[in-house]
């Protein structure tokens, strides 16, 4: 269950207001993040895909999405 009360997190370096109690699956859906190859990191810890539905985002969390890019 989520509420409409917003809380602030840091998402990829920028502040972002999200619904309190939201989990990662819901967050990805709300941000229109497509299925694909990426890794979710919360407060420097990798979150396994199997935990996206249960891992709740808390106020002040630093959430990063890491994706493949070109490199030499």
């Amino acid at each position: 269950m989520t509420s409409n009360v917003n809380t602030t997190i840091n998402f990829n370096g920028d502040e972002l207001a999200v619904e309190s109690g939201i989990n990662i699956s819901q967050f990805l859906q709300q941000q229109e993040i497509i299925e694909g190859r990426f890794v979710v990191v919360i407060n420097d810890e990798i979150v396994p895909k199997s935990e996206y539905g249960s891992a709740v985002i808390s106020a002040g969390d630093a959430l990063e999405i890491m994706s493949p890019i070109t490199g030499g």
Binding site: Q31, I33, G71
Partner: peptide, 12 residues
């Protein structure tokens, strides 16, 4: 070789 960065894959 390739790398990784903070990047969000969206429809847009």
């Amino acid at each position: 070789t390739l790398s990784l960065r903070r990047q969000t894959p969206t429809k847009s």
